[in-house]
């Protein structure tokens, strides 16, 4: 099973499955905004706490292994990114400098602080997004998007891609096995060629599938949109108020605490 299917399974068994998807989305977006608005390094910790508790509650306090792996992967990328930011300082006191080929590298106290902030924000943001993803399957998301009057075409495209994505993934796995049975991955060049052939095969079968689906849709009297039988829970006023409140509280907290913690000062004795 691919990660996509696992995520889907997780979302469908979430304890937050029937919460208003739009409400969840609004909440997460506002938290993410609050996460970015102020320069306080303490705000990302609140965001992280919110994200982790969402994830924990949604998955019944059992965070699956593959999500932990995904988070670690993201963390690794963020650390590299933060490292790069920290050595591309333009202002402030130079802490360390070096030359690499023709590039001059500076680490300043500003860039050092900025790198930490980006790292914390990134990790916290990931956690919140994961919290949303583990509780909201794509179909629910598309329903939410429909409620905010996103063009029908786009929403339906999302639904269909989701639906046929799984089928194509299934086929791709079978074809991959079949190619392995015939030694299609024996050597680098051959692997590339085989992967291309599988791609072509999947492309052909997806056009076939689209063709047949069109016929089948007409057979079932498709009138240009997917009617909904069970609309998701409506996003009530309490969702909006609650989200706005949390967001405002975080921003105020952020403004109040801006500059309270300086990472450079913290590490001064240890590193420099």
């Amino acid at each position: 099973m691919s990660e996509e299917t696992q995520m889907d399974t997780l979302a469908y068994s979430s304890r937050m499955l029937y919460w208003a998807p739009l409400g969840k989305l609004l909440f997460c977006v506002l938290v993410l905004i609050a996460n970015l608005v102020t320069e306080s390094i303490l705000v990302p910790f609140i965001t992280l706490a919110i994200g982790l508790s969402m994830m924990a509650y949604s998955t019944n306090f059992k965070i699956p292994f593959f999500i932990a792996i995904a988070l670690l992967e993201a963390l690794a990328i963020l650390i590299i990114g933060a490292g790069l930011i920290s050595i591309s300082g333009e202002s402030g006191n130079v802490l360390w400098e070096s030359h690499f080929l023709w590039i001059n590298i500076y680490m300043t106290d500003d860039s050092f602080n900025k790198a930490w902030l980006v790292l914390f924000r990134g990790v916290a943001g990931m956690a919140v997004m994961m919290g949303f993803a583990t509780s909201t399957p794509i179909p629910h998301l598309s329903q939410a998007l429909r409620q905010v009057h996103l063009p029908v075409e786009i929403v339906e495209l999302i639904v269909l891609i989701y639906r046929y994505g799984f089928l194509l993934l299934e086929r791709m796995e079978i074809m991959y096995h079949a190619a392995a049975c015939r030694m299609g991955f024996n050597g680098f060049l051959r692997s590339i060629k085989t992967t291309a052939s599988i791609g072509v095969g999947i492309f052909i079968s997806s056009t076939n599938m689209a063709d047949k689906a069109q016929t089948a849709l007409s057979c079932r009297n498709y009138k240009g949109y997917f009617p909904l039988y069970r609309a998701p829970a409506k996003t009530g006023l309490k969702w909006i108020l609650f989200s706005a409140l949390v967001c405002a509280a975080m921003i105020i907290f952020g403004l109040e605490t801006e500059g309270i913690v300086n990472m450079y000062e913290l590490f001064k004795g240890v590193l420099f």
Binding site: K212, L217, Y222, R230
Partner: peptide
């Protein structure tokens, strides 16, 4: 049709069954 995947469009069972009547 023979292959059910060609004619199931909705993401849950009841939505799919409701598709025709709702249309």
């Amino acid at each position: 049709v023979q292959n059910p995947d060609e004619q199931i469009f909705s993401s849950t069972v009841e939505e799919d069954v409701a598709f025709g009547p709702l249309n």
